[in-house]
Every structure is written in C-alpha cells, then in structure tokens.
Design a protein around this nucleic acid. Sequence first.
DNA 1: CCGCAATCGTGACATCCGTCATGGCGAACT
DNA 2: AGTTCGCCATGACGGATGTCACGATTGCGG
Lengths: 201, 201
Amino acid sequence: MIRVLLAEDQAMVRGALAGLLSLEPDIEVVAQVARGDEVLPAAREQRPDIALLDIEMPGIDGLEAAAQLTAELPESKVLILTTFGRPGYLRRAMESGAAGFLLKDAPAEELARAIRRAVRGERVVDPGLAAAALSEGPSPLTAREHDVLAAAREHATVADIAEALHLSPGTVRNYLSAAIGKVGARNRVEAIRAAEDKGWL
Amino acid sequence: MIRVLLAEDQAMVRGALAGLLSLEPDIEVVAQVARGDEVLPAAREQRPDIALLDIEMPGIDGLEAAAQLTAELPESKVLILTTFGRPGYLRRAMESGAAGFLLKDAPAEELARAIRRAVRGERVVDPGLAAAALSEGPSPLTAREHDVLAAAREHATVADIAEALHLSPGTVRNYLSAAIGKVGARNRVEAIRAAEDKGWL
DNA sequence: CCGCAATCGTGACATCCGTCATGGCGAACT
DNA sequence: AGTTCGCCATGACGGATGTCACGATTGCGG
C-alpha cells in the first residue's frame, strides 16, 4: 500500500485528487494539507511513502517544502504537481531533490502511474520540459538583484520598492537596471516576465 | 439522473473532478471538454442538465461560453467553477445567466450539493462575494480604454501597444492616462491589477 | 596581501511615461 | 440644429525610469 501525502491549496481540487487516488487499490491518502508550511509537520507524523506537492501555496511554496522534506525525511519521495511548465520550476524542483515533476495538464491516469514509478525510485519528468530546463543555465542575478526584481512585482513604483527594502531609490534603480540588462529585457515589466519564465524569480 | 457537462482546461483536475462526480449516485458526467469553444458543440449534442465551467480556458473563456449556452440552450443550467473570487467575475457570470458561482477553494463536498441546488433552480453564490460584487458598479472604461489596457498586459512599451492596435503612441498614452485615472491607480501596472481585480478587464 | 565581486550610495543624462489642453470627426440623443 | 460623447491625433510639460560613471565598504579566494 502506497501512503500518500497530498498538498494543494485549492480545497476542491485537493478533494478531487484525493478521491481519484482513493480509487486506486494500492494507494492510500494518509494526509492532506492546504499550506506549504504544513507539509513537514504532517510528514513527520505520517511518514508517507510519497508527497504530492503543488507549487503555488500559501506559507512556503511547494519547492521549498520539497527541499525541507528531502532534507529531513529522505525516505519520503517527492512528486511536484503544478500548473505551470516553467523550465525554472523544474530545475528548482530537481535541485530540491524531487523525484518527479508532473503537470496538471497531463491526463488524470498519469497521476497514479507517476506515483508508482516515483515510489519505485524512478525519476518522472516530461522529456520536452527537461530539455528546456537544461538549455537555460542558473540565474545570472545576484541575491540583491533578485530581491529587487521580486519586490518590483508587488510594488508599482521605485519609491515603493525602495521603502519596502529599506534602500535608496537610486540603488533600486541601479539594481533594476542591472537585472533588466542581465535578462535581456527593455523594461521592468519585461524583465519580471522573463525572469519568471526562466524560473529565476 | 443529473447529466453534467464538464469544461476545464487542466486535464488532471478535469479528470479528478469527473471522478469525484461519478462517485455520486445521482450524477453522471456526459461530456468533458478542455476548451471554451468546445462547450457549445458538446452541449448541443448531449443536452446536459448542467454545465460546470472553468473561467480560464483556451479558445473563449468560461463566461463567454456561459453566455452562449444560456442563449441557445436555456434549459441547461450553468455553474461557474473558478480559482479567483474576483467580484467582477461573479458579476459577469450573473450577467451571462449563470445559475451559480463556485470557488475551487470551497470544499469538495460542496460541488455535488451546488450542482443539485442549481439544477433545482436555486442560485448558488457565496454571500460575501455577492456583496463585494454589488458594491462595485460596472466598468467605467470605454471600449477603447479597455482594449488599450488589455493590450498593455501583453506588451511592455507604449510603442508596442500602439503598433498592436494600429494607433498613434500619443493616443495610446491618452487612453492609458484616462484608464489609470478612472480606476484610481498611479500607474499602468497598478491600473491593470486593479481592473483585473474588479473584473473590468 | 591583493584582486575581485557584491552591496549600497550619489549625481548626471536621455528617454519614457502620465497629464493636460486642444482640435477634428462621426454617431446618438434632445 | 445643437449638444454630448467616444474615437483619434498632436504638442508640450514635469516627473518617473533606465543608463552610466564613479566611489566607499565588505567579504572571499588566491
């Protein structure tokens, strides 16, 4: 019997996935959580064979949760299940020690199959995505450039970003300029898009 | 037996929802589609009692599909199922003749209940969302202001927007300025965010 | 110890963006 | 016929943004 921990913030799809899995004779959902920071505590208690993690979640995201899990409970496999097939997500997932990476676009029957393969120790990754992920190196952004670009997502104006990060407006503009140059954009907005796409954010 | 049409672009959650619904003794999923523009053809063929529509779909979105459906097959109810509880979505859904509006954040058991109530002719709406939707009027944007703001989502610079819409850059800036003023933003980005939030986009 | 890169800042410059005034055009309404 | 409104455009202004040069400080590896 394969014991599964399910982490997904939307209750409806979490419930639906749980229902789907419980139809499989060899699979049992032993824990369901809605937030990234609930993954580790639940895993400590239940010791699942595999954790099925969404990426977009409140608290911490699924990739961080995956890193925590593989660090503390290496015997539990991790399967990332996400909406977005961004190459950067895949790269970060693999760096976090995930055993597999599955898109919500994949057919539903794929899920149980992927779980069984991951538990058996195989790696489950879409070949096309893997190629795309390898074709982009790691992020060229420094830590601070990353922070500033990330803050630019939330705050509309330079002054706002500067205040949020306790920096001078001039410094913010410098970092932004550097980031824009590095990702090859003409613009703050373009830079954010591009960086998100490549998983650098 | 309640006959359901299911429209949702992500195969995994579509399959999971179908599985969930097929567990109910009085519910039967008679059609599944992945695109908004497949809704009407499938409905013509199957004449479902109710259509369960996601909003974010390729082709046309779920709200437009709902409008088409209620216009041509008024005996089929429509239940919108979506990730985002934006008041504007709800308002547009109601204007499209939808019988209900359900969030993917709601618990899974809620789904079957909502379907049964909608088929019975009741309206199914979260009270808090309804209040929020009523508190905002319809969009204050003119058709052209709307277009320009929408184009600003995709294109990073004014010149790009102008070219995409075959307008003069100056005109684009005028419309943008008007839109920014009307939604009460300080910024193009803020304006886009705000307009999306209120469902004006 | 030295070089190098990251962090944070200033000042200057060119460009982009948001705002406003203004005008012509057509459609709709009074 | 006159008014109002949306659409499209131009020109001008100030402020925001992106770029560049430059410097001070810190920490790290050779």
